[in-house]
Design a protein around this nucleic acid. Structure first.
Lengths: 175, 175
DNA sequence: TTAATAATGTTACAATATAACACCTGAAGC
DNA sequence: GCTTCAGGTGTTATATTGTAACATTATTAA
């Protein structure tokens, strides 16, 4: 059975502070388990990636980081690589951007739903999608190593708003 | 039923000249149909993308183009954008590279199998993958606009070779 | 404490992509 | 044919994204 029920877009009453605190706690656990150091810098960059619940680009992370003091690109990229390696964040290839992983610890490659209107995203880990892909690929003798699945579109909120806009436009066109 | 049977990796007896000629003919048809001009430049860049049956990066296209004479990045990117727009080529996000589309004309977004060993690729258009994704996404109220599905791994040929290598290594380790 | 290793700082640069404006060309109407 | 004009291309400069290489600092383990 697929885990689609876990899909979560951000909502008005979302407590992002506690959401992020949970993420940091999980990240610390993962690092301990893998005998890796969750240094002050790595933690800071992890926070910056999580901060907005939207994909963030490396140079935006850098910009934020520079508010604390001097910093250069390699500092950011190295930390991002570290976090990627441990599965604590994911990279969105089609945006050259990064998002916090909601389910670190498990080795996995999620699927991403990204709203083109508000930038909010959700991570899936749908077994039915994974199965369909693996079946198709392996059916032709292809050995899957890595999957990139990025789904752009409108999140439920923005979809509703678009419907509203449409209605508004209809009204306007009556003048 | 899925179209997985269409998967095709390049094989030794593949006649790429005729394969490319077919692609050009199809591209010309598509342009006519859409009332767009398949100019000399666009055709040349289309050929360069098709030439290798592997993903090619914009600056490699540029390099090739410069063998014909002076050229600058916008020239290449504009042609690539045009070809993307018409669905004559696809962009591989995880490689910042481009591949020729084997089935232009149909509006579609394929799935790509890309060999990490030899660079060869194949395009799928699996209805089962598409269905699984649309189902998962729309089940949560998400309106899908665009899909990016990139599957990295070993093509059948390289998978076989890897098995050979393994065997060789086993032999070597006996010395 | 000391040596070894891992992490970070710093400079320079490579690779990818676009903005802005000038110029040319080919299609459509006269 | 000629003219006009939109679309296509050339050109320069620059923005954005990502790394190589080496110096320095911090942490771990002996």
């Amino acid at each position: 059975m697929s885990q689609d029920k876990n899909i979560q877009f951000i909502s008005a009453d979302h407590d992002h502070q506690s959401c992020m605190a949970t993420a940091i706690a999980k990240a610390e656990q993962v690092c301990q388990l893998r005998k890796q150091r969750f240094t002050k810098l790595r933690k800071r960059i992890f926070e910056l990636v999580w901060q907005q619940h939207k994909p963030i680009r490396a140079y935006d992370v850098l910009g934020q980081l520079q508010q604390d003091g001097r910093a250069a690109p390699p500092t950011v990229y190295r930390a991002l690589d570290f976090l990627l390696e441990l599965g604590l964040i994911h990279r969105i290839e089609s945006l050259n951007a990064f998002v916090g992983c909601c389910n670190p610890g498990l080795r996995h490659q999620g699927q991403f739903l990204i709203c083109t209107a508000c930038g909010d995203f959700a991570e899936l880990d749908s077994t039915s999608i994974n199965a369909a892909i693996r079946h198709s690929a392996e059916h032709s003798g292809f050995e899957v190593q890595q999957l990139t699945i990025e789904i752009m579109g409108l999140c439920p909120n923005c979809k509703a708003e678009k419907a509203d806009d449409k209605y508004k436009n209809t009204q306007l066109s009556c003048y």
